[in-house]
């Protein structure tokens, strides 16, 4: 039995008669104990996750500026968002950013994990070099890259050596979002490579040896052993990479303030601005609800797709 309990036959007559009034049977006492262990976390989630979620949904039907009392507006906030070109722009920017970061991450992280899984001299040190940036603060990353993307910064300095002229990375509409996407990928690939690496190391060596003896080449071994056995890891990486990219906030705030012309105003930044700069809390809550709906949709679709793939 995998679960921690001895199976106690609760319904036996003597178990019932043995119980004194106001005392619990052994099995019930364990049930209560188990529930009590979980209770503090449940209460915390109720107060800081489920209640706020309900609150956000509710608030999205009100007009509220933090000072005067909330005023019911029905679908007014949703209509306002629907008619707000900035919201449409933010949706588009978020979609581009999320896919632009997540999809390259899936492939590059797997590639990097395969590279780091090979035997090579100094492997520990090389892995350390790749993994060290995972520990860096978001805010440090934002400041450093703002400096690198400076018109006279390192990126343009390096490009100048190959004869490419100066680009104002963060102040041109065409380059600001791609510049932020590049940072996201640069930061995410090592992180997800660690996860893939663990998945790769969990695959038993003898599978590969047996396949080699049957005459399978490197590609066939990858296709028929590595890929299928990495499926659970892939599901994890896909979901986490999308969720992480969806909630990006620090870089657009510190590096571009959503600009130029809103070209980097992702949805979380739009929500922050609407709520805490313009004090339209109801509208911000409506936008939050939509962002949550999207996150939920992404996750469910991926679970469906990958479950089917497993079967």
């Amino acid at each position: 039995m995998s679960n921690g309990l001895p199976s106690v036959p609760v319904s036996l007559p003597q178990a019932r008669t043995a119980a004194r009034p106001f005392s619990l049977t052994y099995a019930n006492r364990l049930r209560v104990a188990g529930f009590l262990f979980v209770l503090p976390a449940l209460l915390h989630f109720a107060l800081f996750k489920f209640y706020p979620m309900a609150q956000a949904l509710l608030l999205s039907f009100f007009r509220y500026d933090l000072t005067s009392s909330p005023e019911f507006t029905g679908l007014g906030n949703y209509r306002a968002l629907y008619e707000n070109p900035l919201f449409h722009q933010a949706l588009g920017v978020s979609a581009k950013y999320t896919l632009g970061v997540a999809i390259p991450e899936w492939f590059l992280a797997l590639g990097l994990a395969l590279l780091l899984n090979r035997a090579m001299p100094g492997r520990g040190l090389i892995r350390l070099a790749y993994f060290l940036p995972i520990a860096m603060s978001q805010i440090v990353v934002a400041l450093v890259w703002k400096f690198l993307y400076h018109p006279h910064g390192l990126v343009n300095g390096l490009l100048a050596t190959v004869g490419i002229g100066r680009i104002n990375w963060l102040s041109e509409e065409a380059t600001a979002l791609p510049a932020l996407i590049a940072i996201g990928v640069w930061r995410g690939v090592p992180l997800f490579a660690v996860v893939y690496l663990a998945g790769l190391q969990a695959i038993p060596r003898d599978y590969y040896e047996a396949a080699s003896m049957d005459g399978a080449g490197p590609w066939q071994r990858f296709r028929w052993i590595t890929l299928p056995l990495l499926r659970p890891t892939m599901l994890f990486v896909m979901v986490m990479s999308l969720l992480m990219a969806m909630k990006v906030f620090t870089n657009p705030l510190v590096m571009t303030e959503g600009g130029p012309n809103g070209s980097t105003r992702v949805l979380p930044y739009f929500i922050y601005e609407t709520g805490f700069a313009f004090f339209r809390m109801g509208e911000a809550a409506a936008a939050s609800s939509i962002l949550f709906g999207l996150a939920l949709l992404f996750t469910l679709v991926q679970f469906r797709l990958l479950r089917r793939g497993l079967a």
Partner: peptide, 19 residues
């Protein structure tokens, strides 16, 4: 509990602030 992984502060910013 697991579903709250999809409810980071970035999404619940306004209501968490109010709580």
């Amino acid at each position: 509990m697991l579903s709250t992984l999809m409810l980071p502060l970035e999404i619940l910013l306004v209501p968490t602030f109010l709580v």
